Amino acid sequence: MSNLDIIFPASDIERISSRLKECETIGGKFSVLEMFVSEKMGLPEVNPRLPYALQLLNSEHSISIDALSQSLCISNRGLQKLFKKHIGMSPVYYRKIIRFNKAAQLLLNDSENSLTEVSYTCGYFDQAHFIKDFKEFGGISPSEFLRYKTNGSDFYNYRISEPHTLDSIKQQQINI
């Protein structure tokens, strides 16, 4: 009797052992173990469309939600339910987060790009939507972001707790 016999029945241990011996790669063994543990914990099986959807949304090419649902052979509502269940947010919101991160990286790494170029590169149809989403996730406009960058500020670690705080910082700088 092994220590595993306390947690799992002997038949499960024999079954998983034989499946692990059949695997030739470490990745395969991890997949077998992951499926076994998820099954035992009662975790819901992930729809195979989800990893593909995430891959498409994370790819370099921007894809519309309609095109995404068509490529997955699923309705827009079905895609919405799939994301809500496994990701915890809508595919539209997830795509906005991806776009914001991509835009922030482009602005950080390449100062030659105009805001219009960045917005189109990130899949926006106009600069107004880009600026709106950037403000929503970053708390500041892309031009303010670029100003912080040129002044050497660390945007990701900079917090403005109150709007008047920024004014008081500027006033202190003037008084010095």
Score class of each variant (00 low, 15 high):
L108V: 12
E162N: 15
P9E: 11
E117P: 02
T121G: 12
K40Q: 03
F8R: 14
I74N: 08
L33I: 05
L68Y: 04
D126F: 07
I6F: 14
E136D: 07
H61S: 10
I87A: 13
F130H: 03
D167R: 14
F8M: 10
V32D: 00
G123I: 08
G88K: 04
F145W: 04
C73N: 15
P44D: 04
E144Y: 07
E34K: 00
L20S: 04
R15F: 08
I174P: 05
I16T: 04
Y158N: 13
D110F: 12
Q171I: 11
L50N: 05
N3W: 10
I140M: 08
G138Y: 02
N113V: 04
S111I: 11
L166N: 08
I176C: 08
N109H: 13
R159M: 12
L57S: 04
K84A: 11
N151V: 06
Y93G: 05
T165A: 15
E117H: 08
S143Y: 07
F30I: 06
Y148H: 14
S168W: 01
I74H: 06
T165W: 06
P142W: 07
K21T: 07
I26T: 12
I26Y: 07
A128F: 05
I13S: 03
V46G: 08
N157W: 10
S64W: 06
A53Y: 01
Y148S: 09
A53T: 03
G42A: 01
L50W: 04
A104V: 13
L79M: 11
N175E: 14
P91G: 07
A103K: 09
S62F: 12
Y94A: 03
S119Q: 08
R95A: 10
I131W: 00
E14D: 15
G78E: 08
P51I: 04
E162M: 14
G139E: 02
K21I: 07
R19F: 01
N109W: 06
P163S: 14
L43P: 00
L82E: 02
S17K: 14
I176V: 09
I13D: 02
L57V: 02
S71G: 09
I26C: 04
N113W: 09
L72H: 07
S69N: 04
Q173D: 15
Q105S: 15
N47A: 07
G88V: 07
I16E: 06
I140Q: 05
S64T: 09
R49D: 01
E136L: 05
D167L: 14
I160M: 12
L106R: 08
S161Y: 15
S31M: 03
Q171C: 12
I63M: 14
N58R: 06
A103M: 04
R159Y: 10
V32M: 03
F100G: 00
N58S: 02
S153E: 12
S161H: 15
F83W: 11
H164P: 02
I160A: 13
E162C: 14
S75A: 12
I16P: 03
I176S: 10
I63Y: 10
S38M: 02
K29I: 02
Y94F: 13
P91Y: 03
N3A: 13
K135D: 01
I6L: 15
P91E: 10
P163Y: 12
N109Q: 14
S59F: 06
K21E: 13
D133I: 03
V118L: 09
D126G: 07
F145T: 01
